[in-house]
Design a protein around this nucleic acid. Sequence first.
DNA 1: GAGTGGTCTAGACCACTGA
DNA 2: CAGTGGTCTAGACCACTCG
Lengths: 259, 259
Amino acid sequence: MNEEQSIDKNSVIPIYYQLAKLLESQILHGELKPGEALPTETEIANRFEISRMTVRRAIAELITAGMVHAQQGKGTFVSPPKLNNVVFELNNFNQEIKDFGLKLSTTLLGAHIVRADERLMRIFQLDSSTTRLLYFRTVVSAEDERLAYERKYTIYSKSKPILESNLQDPTLSGLVTANNDVLPVSTKKVLQVSVTTAEEAAILGIGVNAPVFVIEETLYDLENKPVGWSKSIYRGDRYQLTGYDGWLRKDNHGGINLG
Amino acid sequence: MNEEQSIDKNSVIPIYYQLAKLLESQILHGELKPGEALPTETEIANRFEISRMTVRRAIAELITAGMVHAQQGKGTFVSPPKLNNVVFELNNFNQEIKDFGLKLSTTLLGAHIVRADERLMRIFQLDSSTTRLLYFRTVVSAEDERLAYERKYTIYSKSKPILESNLQDPTLSGLVTANNDVLPVSTKKVLQVSVTTAEEAAILGIGVNAPVFVIEETLYDLENKPVGWSKSIYRGDRYQLTGYDGWLRKDNHGGINLG
DNA sequence: GAGTGGTCTAGACCACTGA
DNA sequence: CAGTGGTCTAGACCACTCG
């Protein structure tokens, strides 16, 4: 045992990266178990004849990855794998379909100027119903199959006519920036499940009471003021979200991997 | 304008943290716009009479937060806010209910030893149906209202009797560690939407064809071998996921906030 | 008090960019 | 070529933990 693994100081791969991978490997192979302490920073620095700052940089990588945690005055310890913090990336929703080789197309159902009703006044924090909003309805399809129905609203401050360019970037963010001078800087999405209404079923070409994902998105500007809102539904039989957590093996066996 | 904001070198708050917040503030107030370059690291170091390494530490915070990106040989630039990478943390599912003040309770519907059928053999990558599995069915309730129905499986290697302690940690991870000597180190969750079957509706006390979240979780050990699997359904009218992205204001006005 | 991690310095050399 | 960020060093002092 204890075959001293080594660091190549002359490699193009940074020392901190080599050391981080070495420590990660020891943890993934069970040589360092959850709760056990890593060697102290000074010990590691002496053993590999590198600077303590470089050791700290390596350990910082592991801390970010959630594999170890440091306690001032005590030491650095292997963390038990966190399994309760799975995150679902919403990218997948349309991205995975593209990766699957299908072409997505967006069809415009309608673009209207509307005045704010009570619900929209609340969402956009308006105190007057005279504010004009752009109401934009689209359907996302893949290979002639309709997958999602999206209803988007944005404050319509420009007096320009509605631009056809809206369809080039049919995201809510694109719609907002195309029709306003504000820069959306943050977003909030709420995911719920529901079943189709008669109208939604007809638009998607599926049955009534079919299960769907519902996503409400709100875009905010620098002042934290809502500048865009959308409610979209996605066919439940065509979409799913996948998430991971814990000590993930990114499996960097072979291949070039620069930090 | 250009009122020189300052750094207190004698503060208990680290210099890198003060500088990071200062730069972040300039970005959030629009003084530095997306695409614009930050002052060079040397410039910042000279202006505040601090070490370049400390400047780099501050900028590293902003890079992690996704607000800036560095390009070797060119400079460090303000990034446009990323709005397409919303992540939903599954914590919320039961956590928010607790935060709301309700008490969650888990009721055991049944705990059986079963042999692997074809589906379970595939899930657990087994080549023999003689492997014994523990099948664990529970219902999660809040204030006498049933919210979720969970079906969990784990390889049952110990010859111990089924422990009552399983109910103390009713998570899949807890079930696996209580009945095996393996340590689950990573997890995969797939989220889908569906509607209740007659059996599920009866167990949850709601109608048939009601919308529900379906979450299938697989737990893996160090060798990437499945050691636990569960399929759970959550009432669609009681659960939702919320996610954020972009330049988030964590709003640290007042209050103690140590980096 | 000895030992730990947390911060900070003032340099050094490198890789990359663009004129 | 000058200027940028990327890595690394060999120290220093501090805050914290625990005996």
